[in-house]
Amino acid sequence: MKENNPFSLQGKVAVVTGAAAGIGKACAQRMAYSGASVLLSDIDVAACQRLAAELNEQGFDARAIQQDVVLEEDWQALVAELKQWHNRWDILVNNAGIYIGGRLEDNSVEQLTRIHEVNVQSVFLGLRYAAETMQPSGCFGRGGSVINLSSIAGLIGVPGHSIYGATKGSVRSISKHSAVEFARFGYGIRVNSLHPGLIDTAMAEQVYDDFVDVGLTQSREEASAVLEQQMIPMGRLGTAEDIANAALFLASDASAYISGAELTVDGGFTAA
């Protein structure tokens, strides 16, 4: 491999939210292995500290921070931490998110508000602090790449996914608007949305439970069989690493001309 590898993140500083588990954890690892200094944020700071220590032992640069992505003051604290750490910020993966399922008539306004806070307000705040600090006149000033975790649920309809899908549609849309705005104003900040299909994390387990709860299938086993055999052309769930590789591509200079795009990684789910 040549030294000027366009997929390398050498020297760059990345923030991954929801880095304690699942897709976020895999993104943090992949980015650290690719040379980035990675700030791991999650409400579960203990898990992030363990992961940071593990990465440090392997010779990679990582640090943990406790952050509730819903809270503006936690984003301010994150920016302060970045200033003090390497005084640099290049990459943001807005990954933290929750799933709330159920038939639409059983969902409450409280659920709707909560899922929008965690899945949309978080992305808005992340974009806002990235825009302010990464643009040429900002304190970091080098431009950057923001990757927002949407979902195929932000593209298509799935029973039990109405309020979750609404948040992921919002993420898709705010990604496009901010991408166009940041490009037009010369911020040098690229924004893209990443649309995983069903990925084998704790969230997939919740989706199986929800298939049973809403009455789509009798059992979790049946839910898994229906999803894998009937809904996913490749016949299997994706792995968190599959998504992390796509996030790495979008974070790296290899995607320098990609902004406002949707990258779907779903084993063919939405092609059918």
């Binding site: 166009v180 052309p233 490749m234 590789n245 795009a261 779907t264 063919g268 939405t270």
Partner: peptide
């Protein structure tokens, strides 16, 4: 192999052209 779960997808590389 980094794209091993991607099939039937569209990779748009357009500087934001189709996002507007």
């Amino acid at each position: 192999d980094a794209a091993s779960y991607m099939t039937g997808s569209e990779l748009v590389m357009d500087g934001g052209y189709t996002a507007r």
